[in-house]
Computed example of a mutant assay.
Amino acid sequence: MILTSLEVTTALAERRPVVALESTVLAHGLPRPRNLELGLAMEQAVRDGGAVPATVGVIAGVPQVGLSGAEIDRMANSDGVLKLSTRDLAIPIARQSDGATTVASTMWLACRAGVQVFATGGIGGVHRGEDHDISADLTELGRTQMLVVCAGAKSILDLPATREALETAGVLVVGYGTDEFPAFYARRSGLPVDARVDTAEEAAAIWRAHCNLGVPGAMLLCVPPPEEHALSSEDVDSAIAAALESARTEGVRGKEVTPYLLRAVAGHTGGRSLETNVALLLNNARVATEVAVALAAVR
C-alpha cells in the first residue's frame, strides 16, 4: 500500500543514505511561494550532502515515500490538502485524496519503507493552557524507531511539559552541539538533554547502539537554530503571548492551532520568525544528511 519511489528504493537496496522529509510544512506550514521554494531547497540540501531525499505524503490516495518535483508542487499549491497524523492516514486512502504528513505520520510511513533518518523543523508536544491538547507526535516518537533531527519542540508549546512527556514516553533526547533542549525559534530553553554530541559520527554511533539493542521509539537529535537567525527568548515569549490571546479570542482549536499560532507569531515578529523557521529547516536537513551519510559509511 505504501509506494516508495524508484530512487529511494534503489538507494535503500544499495544501502546508500536516505533522509525523509515531511509534507505538512509544504501544505500548512509556510505561505506560498516560500513553501515550495523551501521544500525544493531542503531536497537539494540533502542531495548536496550526498544522500537521497524522500519527501513523504499521500497523493490521490496513495501514501508515498519519495515525492517527485511535480508532486511536491502539487502539495504546496493545492487547496484543501488534509493534514494527516498517523490515525488520519486511512481517510485520504479511502477517499483517494491528497494529504500532507505531520511528524507522526511521516515517521510511521518512512519507517515502514526502511528509512532511518528524518529531518523536520520542530516536533509537536504539550500545548500551553488548560485544554490538555497533546500532539500525537509524542505517541509516535515513543513507539517508532526513527532518528529525528529537529530544533526541539515548537516554541508555542509548553516546553517543560513537553520535555517531561518525552521522558515519560522513553524518547532519547540528544543535543547536537548543545547541552540544552532548543526552543525552535530560540537556541536555549533552560531544559537539559539526555546527552550531547558534537559530530554526526557520534550521533550515528548512539543511534546504531539504540537500534542494536532493539529499544523502541525515536531518538531526537536536537539542533539549535543557526545563531544568525535565532530570536531572543524575550521576543519569542512576547510574540507567543499575543498569538495565544488571538487564538483564544477567535476560538481556534485542534489541528488548526499550530499553523494559526505560527502565522500569528510571524506577524508579531515582523516576519523574523518565518526566516528563522526557514533557516532551521534547511540546517536540520543538512545535519540529518550528515548523520545519514555517517550511518551508511559503517554498514
Score class of each variant (00 low, 15 high):
Leu3Trp: 12
Leu6Gly: 02
Glu7Lys: 06
Thr10Val: 14
Leu12Trp: 03
Pro17His: 03
Ser23Pro: 11
Thr24Leu: 08
His28Trp: 11
His28Asp: 05
Gly29Cys: 09
Pro31Glu: 12
Pro31Gln: 11
Arg32Thr: 12
Pro33Asp: 06
Pro33Gly: 11
Leu38Ile: 13
Leu40Gly: 04
Ala41Tyr: 05
Gln44Val: 00
Gly57Ser: 14
Gly57Glu: 07
Ala60Val: 02
Gly61Leu: 11
Val62Tyr: 01
Val62Gln: 08
Val65Pro: 02
Val65Leu: 13
Leu67Asn: 06
Ala70Glu: 15
Glu71Gln: 15
Ile72Tyr: 01
Arg74Pro: 01
Arg74Ala: 00
Met75Lys: 04
Asp79Tyr: 14
Val81Gln: 07
Lys83His: 06
Thr86Lys: 15
Ala90Cys: 07
Ile93Phe: 06
Ala94Lys: 03
Gln96Pro: 00
Gln96Ser: 14
Asp98Cys: 13
Asp98Glu: 09
Asp98His: 15
Ala100Trp: 08
Thr102Ser: 06
Ala104Arg: 09
Met107Arg: 00
Trp108Asn: 02
Trp108Leu: 05
Cys111Ser: 09
Arg112Asp: 02
Arg112Gly: 06
Ala113Cys: 12
Val115Leu: 13
Val117Ile: 10
Ala119Asp: 04
Gly122Arg: 00
Glu130Trp: 04
His132Phe: 14
Asp137Val: 09
Leu141Gln: 07
Gln145Tyr: 02
Leu147Val: 12
Val148Arg: 02
Gly152Cys: 08
Arg163His: 10
Ala165Glu: 14
Ala169Cys: 04
Ala169Val: 08
Val171Tyr: 04
Val174Gly: 01
Tyr176Cys: 06
Asp179Tyr: 09
Glu180Thr: 14
Phe181Arg: 05
Pro182Asp: 11
Pro182Phe: 07
Gly190Phe: 15
Leu191Pro: 07
Pro192Lys: 03
Pro192Ala: 11
Pro192Cys: 10
Ala195His: 12
Ala195Pro: 00
Glu201Asn: 13
Ala204Tyr: 08
Ala204Glu: 02
Gly214Cys: 07
Val215Pro: 00
Pro216Cys: 05
Ala218Asp: 03
Met219Phe: 05
Leu221Trp: 03
Leu221Gln: 01
Leu221Pro: 01
Pro225His: 10
Pro226Asn: 10
Glu227Trp: 06
His229Trp: 12
Leu231Glu: 02
Ser233Asp: 01
Ser233Met: 04
Val236Asp: 00
Ala243Phe: 04
Ser246Thr: 14
Val252Gly: 00
Lys255His: 13
Leu262Val: 13
Ala264Pro: 04
Ala264Cys: 09
Val265Leu: 03
His268Phe: 14
Thr269His: 08
Leu282Pro: 02
Val287Cys: 11
Ala288Trp: 08
Ala292Met: 09
Val293Tyr: 04
Ala294Val: 11
Ala297Thr: 05
